[in-house]
C-alpha cells in the first residue's frame, strides 16, 4: 500500500471539515477524489500533503507513519504536491521553478530536467522567462513538471484542469497516464472535470460533507445520470 488514511479528521482553526475519512491507495494506482464544491476535497489533499495538521486518525505513507510529519518531511519521502492554483513561484524563472522540485523524494538522484522538457517542450522554450509571465496552462505544466524533476512516488494533484484550455488538459491527462503506466507512479487526484477523471483514474471516491460517500469506477461516473446524482452538476 502506497498511502493509507485511517479515520482522518482535519480542518482549519480547530473546526473539522474532513471527518473520519479512511481510504487506501495502492502502489501504481490512480485514485480520483470527486465531489461538489466545498465538500472538503482540497482540505483532504492538503492534509495528506502535510500542510494541515491531522486532528484525529492517522496517515501512513510507504509503510511509515507520517501523521505527525510536516510537509517538508513528506515531500522528501516522495509526496509530490501540486496545489490548486498551481503554486508556482512567479518571480523565479521557469528553470528555477523546476529546480525547486529537486528535493521531492530525497533529492539525491540526478534531477530529470531533460525528461520534463521532453514532456512539456513549451517549458524548454520559456525556461529563462519569469514564471509569472506564463499562461495558466503553461503554469500547470510547470507545477507538474517541477514535481517530476524530483523522485516522487505519489503525485497529489488538486484540480489540475481548473482554468485551463481543453487541449492542455488532454496533454496533462496523457502525461499522467504515461507516467503511471511506464513508471508505476501513484496518483491521488482531486478533480471536477469528468473527462480528465475518466481518462486517467482507476477508481473514484466520492466525497460529500467531509466524508467518503461512495466508490465508483470511471465508467460508472461517465454515466451522466450517476454524475448528476453525486456531483450535482
Amino acid at each position: 500500500m502506497e498511502l493509507g488514511l485511517e479515520g482522518v479528521t482535519s480542518g482549519y482553526g480547530g473546526i473539522p471539515i474532513v471527518r473520519e475519512v479512511s481510504l487506501e491507495v495502492e502502489n501504481g494506482e490512480i485514485v480520483a477524489i470527486v465531489g461538489r464544491n466545498g465538500v472538503g476535497k482540497t482540505t483532504l489533499i492538503e492534509t495528506v500533503a502535510g500542510l494541515l495538521p491531522v486532528m484525529e486518525g492517522g496517515i501512513t505513507f510507504r509503510g511509515q507513519d507520517v501523521t505527525r510529519a510536516d510537509a517538508r518531511d513528506r515531500a522528501r519521502l516522495g509526496m509530490g504536491y501540486v496545489p490548486q492554483g498551481r503554486g508556482i513561484f512567479s518571480r523565479l524563472s521557469v528553470e528555477e521553478n523546476l529546480r525547486m522540485g529537486e528535493l521531492v523524494g530525497g533529492g539525491r538522484a540526478e534531477a530529470a530536467f531533460e525528461r520534463v522538457y521532453e514532456w512539456f517542450p513549451r517549458l524548454r522554450e520559456r525556461r529563462r522567462q519569469r514564471a509569472g509571465t506564463l499562461s495558466g496552462g503553461e503554469q500547470q505544466m510547470l507545477a507538474i513538471g517541477r514535481i517530476l524533476v524530483g523522485q516522487p512516488s505519489i503525485l497529489l494533484l488538486d484540480e489540475p484542469s481548473e482554468g485551463i484550455q481543453p487541449t492542455i488538459v488532454e496533454q496533462i491527462a496523457d502525461v499522467i497516464a504515461t507516467l503511471n503506466r511506464d513508471n508505476a507512479l501513484t496518483v491521488l487526484l482531486v478533480e471536477q472535470n469528468i473527462d480528465l477523471v475518466c481518462a486517467t483514474a482507476h477508481r473514484c471516491i466520492v466525497v460529500d460533507k467531509g466524508a467518503t460517500a461512495a466508490t465508483l469506477t470511471p465508467d460508472e461516473l461517465a454515466d451522466p445520470e450517476v454524475a448528476r446524482r453525486y456531483l450535482a452538476i
Binding site: 500542510l51 510537509a71 517538508r72 515531500a75 521531492v104
Partner: peptide, 11 residues
C-alpha cells in the same frame, strides 16, 4: 515568495 509551497516541496 511562498513559504508554504516551498515547504511542500521539501525546503
Amino acid at each position: 515568495e511562498n513559504p508554504r509551497m516551498a515547504r511542500a516541496l521539501g525546503v
